[in-house]
Structure formats: structure tokens, C-alpha cells
Write a protein that binds this DNA or RNA. Structure first.
Ligand SMILES: [Mn+2]
Ligand SMILES: [Mn+2]
Ligand SMILES: [Zn+2]
Ligand SMILES: [Zn+2]
Lengths: 136, 136
DNA sequence: ATCAATTCTTGCAATCATTATAAAATTAGA
DNA sequence: TCTAATTTTATAATGATTGCAAGAATTGAT
């Protein structure tokens, strides 16, 4: 799955988000690191580049990005929120051995039609758990 | 979706879980309340019947039940873990207005085969978000 | 029935992720 | 430049979950 992104600043502006230094860095990070990082991973890694960075900024920024539709929030395990720059529908596979989260294609539109008449569906999520090929 | 359950004590024994008073009560509660309750809801409601009940016991019991395959853990939102007595594959719809979680039938076996060759899939989850008919 | 060993429950403290808040820094516009 | 609005930062507060040790209940053997 190869997807191209606008340059971070332009992407922010087009979503009505002001392109501050920190926001651009966080967005660049998410584009480079499509491994579904946690708040902590993002914070730890960016601290090198931005010594004054605060974890609050990461939380604020991710919340803002999610509200603007720039990113997707992934909650597979309790107490382990992850963030995904890929907003298109796709499934996630989490390896219970190594913890890695893989993307996979899934035809969500082919899913569930019957039981949900009268419901307004706004977001569809699919995730599997198991063991990845590396760990098998 | 109507499903019948063994009597709680028998169900516990058949899963090698000792049927203590508290465990039976929690299991009965989950069978009666298939609304995907939180730890807090279970605790609050059972406190009436069991005045000495501790929240630790609820946590311990649910963890044990999940490990024994008696229940399923649902994490749709961060920081809001819910528990489901229905262990068969089915989808969940969460209403973002009223917070209710509905079950729906979903053919998980028809899902994703291609991308995941070489992966050992052990658990499949599908959840949607949106607005339920009552809230529309 | 008694006793010791094991298991379970309880209460409380500790931890960890997330949110709230207010001051300091930055930015935008006049 | 000056002022107002926005953003970042640091720190405190919250809330869910886990860890732990003592007490209670249960089991199995005598
Ligand atoms: Mn993804
Ligand atoms: Mn369910
Ligand atoms: Zn793995
Ligand atoms: Zn609703």
C-alpha cells in the first residue's frame, strides 16, 4: 500500500489547521513512521529534534489532527492508543507476540448490510489478532 | 440474536474456573446484561447484592473469564473497556450520541484472505461507529 | 470435626495514560 | 512596534487498571 501525501504544511492548511513548527514535525513523523505509533513513541523520537517538546503538545496535536480528519485513532488494546496517517478504510492485524500492527486490505463496503438498517454508519473498523509470519 | 447459556456454575466448572460466589454473580450479571457493561457498571450494580464486594474482584474475575474464553473484551474507545458474554463472532455498532453498543451479524469468514497469508489469525473484530435509529 | 495448605477476596497503594489548567512563548494583524 | 489571539509548555489532577499483602473461605487429608 503506497500512498503519497501533500507536503505537511500544505496538508495542514487545507484542513484549516495552522502549520506550527510542532504540528509539522508531528505530521512529518506520522508520514515517515506508518507503524501506528503511540503517543510515547512519537514523543520520545521527536524530543531529539525538539528539546523543549512537551507531551501535552503531542496529545493536543493528535486530538486536533483526528478531529480534522488528518489521522485515524486506533484502539485495539485497552490502554494503548495508536495513531495512523492512513485514513482510508483498511484492516489492522496485531501480532500478540511482537506487538507489531500490520495493515491489510478489506472491503468494508461488502460488510454488514442487513442488521443495520436505520443506523447512520460513519466509521468502519476491522482488526484481527494473532501471530505474524516473523513470529511463527 | 437469542443464545442460551449453561447455568453459571456449570459453565465455570466446564472451563476449569472454580465457581466462587462472586464469580457466579458476575457471570449471571453478564448473561442478564448483554449491553456490554463496563467494570464500573458491573461493580455498581452488584454492590447492592454483595455489600462487601471489591472492584479488584471484578477486575480479577473478568480477566480470568477472558483467559478462559468465557467472555470477550471489547475496546472501541480508549479508556472504556467493555465486556461481552457473546463469544461468537459478531460486529459492534457504537452510537456516538447515546453511547449504546449494538450487536450485528457479520460474516467475518468472508473477510480478508489475500493480504494475510502466513499470518495466524486468532481473533476477528469488526466495529462501526455512527448514530443509532433512536438518536437520529 | 480438626488442621494445614491452597485459593480467593478485599482494601489500599502504586502506576500509567490522559486531561485540565494556567503561565510563558509565539504568531498574526493593525 | 503593539496588542490580541493562538499555541506551547509545565505541572497538577483525574481515572482506569494493576500490584500487593493481609484476611477469609475452601479444600483435602487426618
Ligand atoms: Mn493502518
Ligand atoms: Mn456483543
Ligand atoms: Zn510478530
Ligand atoms: Zn444512540
Amino acid at each position: 500500500m503506497k500512498i503519497s501525501f501533500d507536503d505537511p504544511s500544505t496538508a495542514l492548511i487545507s484542513r484549516k489547521v495552522r502549520p506550527s513548527y510542532q504540528r509539522i514535525k508531528v505530521l512529518e513523523y506520522l508520514i515517515k513512521n506508518q507503524c501506528h505509533p503511540t503517543v510515547d513513541q512519537i514523543f520520545q523520537d521527536l524530543q531529539g529534534e525538539i528539546p523543549t517538546l512537551s507531551k501535552s503538545t503531542i496529545y493536543n496535536t493528535l486530538k486536533l489532527f483526528a478531529a480534522a480528519g488528518l489521522i485515524r485513532v486506533i484502539t485495539i488494546e485497552e490502554n494503548e492508543t495508536r495513531y495512523d496517517i492512513l485514513t482510508e478504510d483498511h484492516g489492522h492485524f496485531k501480532c500478540e507476540k511482537c506487538g507489531a500492527i500490520y495493515n491489510f486490505a478489506v472491503d468494508v463496503d461488502a460488510l454488514a448490510t442487513g442488521d443495520l438498517t436505520g443506523f447512520k454508519v460513519m466509521e468502519k473498523n476491522v482488526y484481527f489478532k494473532g501471530i505474524c509470519p516473523k513470529c511463527l
